[in-house]
Nucleic acid binder design. Structure first.
Lengths: 332, 332
DNA sequence: CTGAAAGCGCTTACAG
DNA sequence: CTGAAAGCGCTTACAG
């Protein structure tokens, strides 16, 4: 059982002090280039790996960030978030949390209180008011929530979400669709609220301009059933109507419900989704949707946390992460 | 800046030694019930949280496990895996790794060499031969790979995968379908190989029994395009034919391709998927599929790792994680 | 430019 | 049943 070498072992082998080894590895302190080179080579040859627990204890920095996810999140978001964290020198630890909002919030608070992490990024909705405790601000662990219940709707994700909705409505209106319906996703999610609000605002704005009217906002869950039952709740004379669905799953339900009502797509009804689910491209009709750059969304969220950790100003705008894909469900 | 209390602080406040605090918290050592109670209460009131880095350094146990995932994995698997780990007293750290097999394998080896983890569970394919180095076995970090390139096809997941395929083929054969096609998923994944092999074996077994024949194995990727082009590769006189697709995305492609060939479902052709993707239930026709209990799959995988860490015998069978959902794409 | 020494916060034999 | 002391492996003022 060959115990892993310590910095002390490396120092002895290299004929220098333990401090020199530390300096060589961290790049701190003052060391001649030759000494540094030599130490690094010896460390390499011995397969030396610094004991991170010891380093963490001494520096009082864990170098770890927690990412909180729910069960429904695309793991591509995590990939992106982890990538940015790694580039900034942090390891990420993922905590999948389900249950009620209160439960999730309590868990995040526990995470913050554990002081194991230098920062926490939560990608599931939490009650941000509850997190503004000493432990999570001032002297505590910074928590950045990407999808919160607070009313700070001016977050990057929220603003970005409005764009495709506007484009959907405006483009379809220009093509002659005047009656619109929104089947919203869960209002617990910032994205659900943002898309709903964007829909309402856009329809209102285009009311006089283009004669657009809304038959209402339905749904309130990211499920196919929400889309399907919304179709059944519409009056018989609803068509011709354009349906802006909260996401692809909801849109699939809309297509199903419309077929059950005897409405044909894209003659009586057109529908848009969101997420660019792989299956959508192969449905009949194929689904018009918003391709989301999930890794980039994850990167953006993590950049916000890193920025905050460094005490820098607000996050940059980041790359645009949305791209509309027009397909058969809107007549191409 | 109120520095977090240490065990020493708690000891002083409780009027006991630092060791007593440690004993009270870990449950080790010998301590009177009264003393333990008292210490615990004081610790609680001070908001004491043991410094995990210090504990880890002293015990030489990090209490952390690494879970390696790819970008395509359902995060529900992670939820399940994390749950089991937590119950066993471990924290899990997720590493999303993409790129080639060689790249992924190298990253996993790095993870093992870092000695930060007590065990590693990889849910993406790696070259298991390459991992059988000292660092990852004997004295090193145990690595459990759920989807490997090795030929140990007898893993739990693999065996479990065969069942639904058998049931699909046998049930459809009993309903009068005699010509079968398989559109396989990626052969890089144990599940892809297992389903393909199960298909071949079942068709062979039922050849004489029920007059079943196979028109071949197509595909080789978890994409809709694989399904679609498989349909275009079939001869005109293929129908009536039953298509066993590698998963729901592939099955959606099959439906699309079949429609393009002018074949109607479920008259000329029936198709089965796998994964119970949410959208599948709302497609027209709705998709027959295999509902996979992803959290349970994650739990099973993690149980294998925990079992190995404890040096116990092979894993128990675990709960069945597959359930066939018959829908319109097979005529109900 | 380099080295000796202290100390991060915990656990655990060991002595009482 | 309890406490004093050592030590896990590292980093960092500080003295040379």
């Amino acid at each position: 059982m060959p115990k892993p070498p310590t910095s002390h072992d490396v120092a002895r082998a290299a004929g220098v002090s333990q401090a020199a080894v530390s300096y060589a590895l961290t790049g701190r302190g003052t060391l001649s280039a030759a000494t540094r080179e030599h130490v690094l080579r010896v460390a390499e040859s011995m397969g030396y790996r610094p004991n991170l627990a010891a380093r963490s204890m001494r520096t009082r920095r864990s170098g770890r960030l927690a990412v909180v996810t729910g069960a429904t999140l695309s793991s591509k978001v995590l990939t992106g978030a982890a990538e940015v964290a790694e580039a900034a020198g942090y390891a990420t630890e993922t905590h999948a949390i389900d249950g009620t909002v209160e439960h999730r919030t309590a868990r995040v608070r526990d995470l913050a209180a554990s002081r194991q992490y230098e920062g926490i990024l939560t990608l599931v909705p939490v009650l941000s008011d509850e997190l503004d405790t000493p432990a999570s601000s001032e002297d505590g662990t910074p928590v950045v929530a990407e999808a919160t219940f607070d009313e700070q709707m001016r977050s990057l994700g929220t603003l970005a979400d409005a764009r495709p909705i506007e484009e959907f409505v405006a483009t379809l209106a220009a093509r002659g669709w005047h009656r619109f319906v929104h089947v919203a996703g869960s209002s617990q999610y910032a994205s659900g609220r943002a898309r709903r609000d964007a829909y309402i605002a856009t329809v209102e704005r285009l009311a006089t301009e283009s004669g657009v009217t809304s038959l209402g906002v339905f749904g309130g869950a990211w499920t196919g059933e929400a889309g399907r039952s919304a179709m059944h709740d519409l009056p018989d004379d609803a068509p011709p109507v354009a349906v802006i669905a909260g996401n692809d799953v909801v849109a699939a339900g809309v297509l199903r419900g419309a077929a059950e009502r005897g409405w044909t797509v894209p003659d009586d009804l057109v529908v848009t989704g969101w997420d660019d689910a792989e299956i959508g491209a192969f449905m009949s009709p194929s689904l018009t949707t918003v391709a989301v750059d999930f890794p980039e969304a994850g990167r953006n969220a993590m950049r916000r946390l890193i920025t905050r950790l460094r005490g820098e100003a607000g996050p940059g705008t980041g790359a645009p992460i949305h791209r509309i894909v027009w397909r058969e469900s809107t007549g191409g």
